[in-house]
Design a protein around this nucleic acid. Sequence first.
DNA 1: GTCTATAGATTGATAGAC
DNA 2: GTCTATCAATCTATAGAC
Lengths: 188, 188
Amino acid sequence: MDRKTALLDSAERAVRARGYNGFSYADLAEDVGIRKASIHYHFPKKDDLAKALMSRYRETLFSDLKNINARHKTGGARLHDYIQIYKSGLSGCKCLCLCVAFSSGQDSLSDQVLLEIQKFHSGSRKWLIETFTLGHKDNSITNVGNIEQEAAACLAIMEGAQLIARSSRKIEDFDTAAAQLTSRVYVQ
Amino acid sequence: MDRKTALLDSAERAVRARGYNGFSYADLAEDVGIRKASIHYHFPKKDDLAKALMSRYRETLFSDLKNINARHKTGGARLHDYIQIYKSGLSGCKCLCLCVAFSSGQDSLSDQVLLEIQKFHSGSRKWLIETFTLGHKDNSITNVGNIEQEAAACLAIMEGAQLIARSSRKIEDFDTAAAQLTSRVYVQ
DNA sequence: GTCTATAGATTGATAGAC
DNA sequence: GTCTATCAATCTATAGAC
């Protein structure tokens, strides 16, 4: 694996575990096995690294959503996989979605990083609206109310449930909060 | 106002706007009008400050919940006021609930602070369970499903909706995510 | 691309006078 | 309780050799 990718991987783990201000170039250097000055060759400023991180993360999500659509035909099955992304992303209640991790110390983020976060949210919402619409039509999601509200609530539950489960260190807390969604979903 | 309270107030604003690692004793000193060394008299270590902050915040919430119970008799009216706490807490989409703000850079928080966060969550959940139970009985909240799941989802929506609205700087995004709750509530 | 060396700033924290 | 003075550590970032 090339070094730039290794740095991005290490930084992503760090941000999701400790937040943007919770890691330094020194930490990355030790983790990747490189001198900290060398990191500046790949990412001149820390903000360049943040931008690259959030951009890659957003693209990965969008690609994941496309793959979900290709794998499943019903809204319910798609929503089930979406929820699974957030659950497995917790990695033993230690990591948050990068987007959630970035969202706290927001005043230290540049406008470009904020823009990536907004793209992440709006892209998610768009996909969720399509998915709830489909799930309502094909009867794979029950009790669907106002679609826009469903999509917004679903996104909020995913992010909020991650925060709560991370604090309690109990994955069940994620499941309980998500149950309002999962209990309405027919997977097959 | 005594200085200790002024320091707590300033620190709370800072954490909610920029996160725990996003402010320094120097920032507090300038804001309160004191030398930064003097802060150590009131809070020897930064972690003492974090502990005091989260403890006070939790007690304030618990007191607020008691006041809500005293003010309103129906579950719906109580839940309405609860949601309002999180909405108004956003303060123009700039501030997060202290608990949410703390939850990101968690690895830099001591066990005592983590314990306060857990107390905050469990106390909230307990109150929400009582409130949904009441609202279901007195018909002021409609469509109540599994009470534990309702409470967990409500808490997650509040925290997640704050994150999303803060990123987009649109208070409407909070309202849309919360609408799944508010639309089921009869206030009077 | 990676290194050594270093700069300049900021951090949380302490000692001791008043 | 608040101050000045100072500390050691850490941070992001740069210059220049290889």
